[in-house]
């Protein structure tokens, strides 16, 4: 890796000597983790890595979801690089349980916190308490509260409408701009699902020869997906395309199609988690759009460190909202995407 970047051990040492003490400490940590120390030193110098370990609390919707578990791993990975001890409060895919966890989080002291709400508006009181204490709160992926009712440090989230539109566009293009299509939605109350549905609709309305057969929600539930698709495959002799609001549902439906020997359907998903990318590479799925868990959770570490060490404030150094989009993953870029995910870069 060192040779690849053209930095010799000697020049690397010289470079490290020129940076601050904190950056030198960063280099030691980075080097120990197999990351190019020159890059590490530079990154640490830019971000203002803390000498003393920072304490950060994280919570996302629920670690049962592979996307969230990947986010946890990314936060911990980037936390080690930036000298941040990450404590996790699992949302357990349950608004009540997450609220209790965030109440407990708010009763302790943290340098910064990062939260992906399972239910919008359910965490407002304890989050406000932390903000009032002066703790930077970084909002991940889903709004903690509607509009500008809460003053979070920043909001790191993908553009769900864009993701829905870009995947649908890829599907419709592959269908030749005509045929039948199904959208299987996530939970209707989820803003991510609402955005993805909006993106889907914005594309299909431009194609009069594309007929939308069904848009039922399956609530992210793979068993519900199986039930819905058993019915759809019986009801419709040909389904040319199918857009699913996440990969887990897409893969579950792909299994149902396989059992029914129905191979005509082009499948598109969202999240681009490794099993879905494998399915894309094997041709079982046409594509999946990346919802960059690593970028969102790792970005929260960087944003938190920059706030605590570098003194960044909302609107002064960091914008109120940061869009963290990912590309549509196809056979062409699948391998690269897997590598980037392995190293928590996207």
């Amino acid at each position: 890796m060192t040779e690849k970047f053209g930095v010799t051990p000697q020049s690397r040492r010289d470079f490290i000597k020129t940076v601050t003490g904190s950056a030198a400490a960063a280099a030691a940590v980075f080097g120990g983790m197999g990351i190019n120390p020159a890059f590490a030193a530079e990154a640490a110098a830019v971000s203002g890595r803390s000498e003393k370990p920072l304490k950060a609390a994280f919570s996302n919707a629920g670690l049962q979801a592979s996307w969230c578990a990947q986010g946890k791993a990314a936060a911990e990975y980037w936390g080690k690089l930036f000298n941040v001890d990450v404590t996790w409060f699992d949302g357990q895919l349950d608004a009540v349980k997450q609220r209790a966890a965030i109440d407990n989080m708010a009763s302790q002291d943290w340098d910064f916190v990062a939260i992906q709400a399972f239910g919008i508006g359910t965490l407002t009181a304890p989050v406000q308490k932390m903000i009032d204490k002066g703790t930077p709160v970084i909002d991940l992926d889903t709004l903690i509260a509607p509009l500008d009712s809460i003053n979070v440090h920043t909001f790191l989230a993908p553009d769900n409408e864009f993701m829905g539109a870009s995947m649908t566009q890829a599907l419709v293009t592959a269908m030749g701009g005509k045929g039948t299509i199904v959208m299987t939605q996530g939970a209707l109350g989820h803003t991510g699902a609402q955005g993805r549905a909006k993106g889907f609709e914005s594309v299909v309305k431009n194609f009069p020869d594309v007929e939308v057969l069904d848009t039922q929600p399956a609530d992210w539930d793979v068993s519900k997906v199986a039930r819905i698709w058993e019915t759809l495959l019986t009801k419709y002799p040909t389904i040319n395309g199918a857009f699913f609001h996440n990969d887990d549902m897409a893969l579950a439906a792909a299994e149902v199609m396989k059992r029914h020997n129905r191979t005509e359907t082009l499948i598109g998903g969202v999240d681009a988690m490794p099993p879905a990318i494998e399915a894309v590479l094997q041709g079982r799925m046409l594509g999946t759009v990346r919802n960059p868990s690593g970028r969102i959770h790792g970005g929260a570490i960087v944003a938190g460190v920059a706030a605590v060490v570098g003194g960044e404030k909302t609107g002064e150094g960091i914008p109120k909202s940061i869009v963290t989009d990912g590309p549509v993953v196809t056979k062409a870029n699948g391998e690269g995407m897997l590598w980037m995910q392995k190293h928590f870069l996207i």
Partner: peptide, 10 residues
Amino acid sequence: FGSAQQNEFG
């Protein structure tokens, strides 16, 4: 909780 939504209290 600050909001009313489906499947909130399961």
